[in-house]
């Protein structure tokens, strides 16, 4: 980008959350101005990389840079999203871009949050197929219609944007599983090949795991993959209620 002529450059005012607990200093917002091309709509992650060229100590996660690995979930001008597939045109207002870590989880450093709690909740739902099948080198048959039930569920990239946008998860991150884990819970409940549906539902049948979802739908509005955890949660709720009647 250093080869672009001056008249094609515009300045973006970035404000980035900085925190390194090792220093003993409090978190602060660092203002950094970066030059970006006028006629090209770059992504938030690209802008962040340019900021890092100016100050190499800024820390953030990134990997695929195409929205499939889930590394760079962050809070972008107030809304959770993935830096790599969020174009500046979609979020920058008045030439300002404010980046903060995903809310509700402990900050490790700068834009990097500790995902342990998030991953623990995911592991709780037993995120793997449970099937009574001999290993005999054949596939378990599944109809096209049954496979379609997994669309909109299996695509989750575990970026954490949804759970960290959920007030219920903020309040009870240990007891309420959160939208990401529940989406995956339903992904296995809905899988025609899985033989542990009842056990899975048993595990979710308490006041917190599922029922702390109050249908706020922040998860839906922030999901960078366009998935609908609220719908999956409602399906689980319906199954639990139906069982109880």
């Amino acid at each position: 980008m250093n080869t672009i002529a001056a008249e094609q450059i515009t300045t973006l005012k970035m404000s980035i959350y900085r925190y390194d607990p090792d220093t003993g200093n409090k978190p602060f917002m660092q203002d950094i101005d970066i030059d970006i091309p006028k006629d090209k709509d770059i992504m938030v992650l690209d802008a962040l990389q340019l900021a890092k060229e100016k100050d190499s100590s800024i820390s953030f996660r990134r990997s695929c840079r195409e929205g499939v690995c889930g590394s760079d979930g962050m809070n972008i001008n107030g809304k959770n999203g993935l830096g790599c597939i969020t174009p500046l045109s979609k979020v920058v207002r008045k030439n300002k871009l404010e980046l903060r870590p995903l809310p509700g989880l402990p900050v490790v450093k700068d834009l990097i949050v500790d995902m342990t709690q998030f991953v623990d909740q995911y592991k709780k739902i037993r995120p793997y197929l449970i099937a009574d099948k001999e290993s005999d080198s054949t596939a378990i048959p599944q109809t096209v219609q049954d496979r379609e039930k997994l669309d909109g569920l299996y695509e989750c990239i575990l970026c954490g944007c949804c759970s960290t946008a959920c007030p219920s998860f903020w309040w009870n991150p240990d007891k309420f599983l959160g939208p990401a884990a529940l989406l995956q819970a339903y992904r296995f409940i809905a899988d025609s090949r899985d033989t542990a549906r009842e056990e899975r539902l048993d595990q979710l049948e308490d006041a917190f795991s599922v029922f702390r979802c109050h249908g706020i739908m922040n998860c839906v509005s922030v999901c960078p993959k366009g998935l609908n955890p609220t719908k999956a949660i409602n399906e689980i709720k319906k199954m639990l209620v139906k069982r109880a009647l």
């Binding site: 197929l129 096209v144 899985d194």
Partner: peptide, 23 residues
């Protein structure tokens, strides 16, 4: 290969399906 692909399917890999329910 085939044994490994079937093993992945048995682990839960959500392959797309044919009308006959195969991978």
């Amino acid at each position: 290969g085939p044994a490994t692909v079937f093993e992945l399917e048995n682990m839960g890999l959500p392959f797309s399906r044919t009308e006959e329910g195969k991978i």
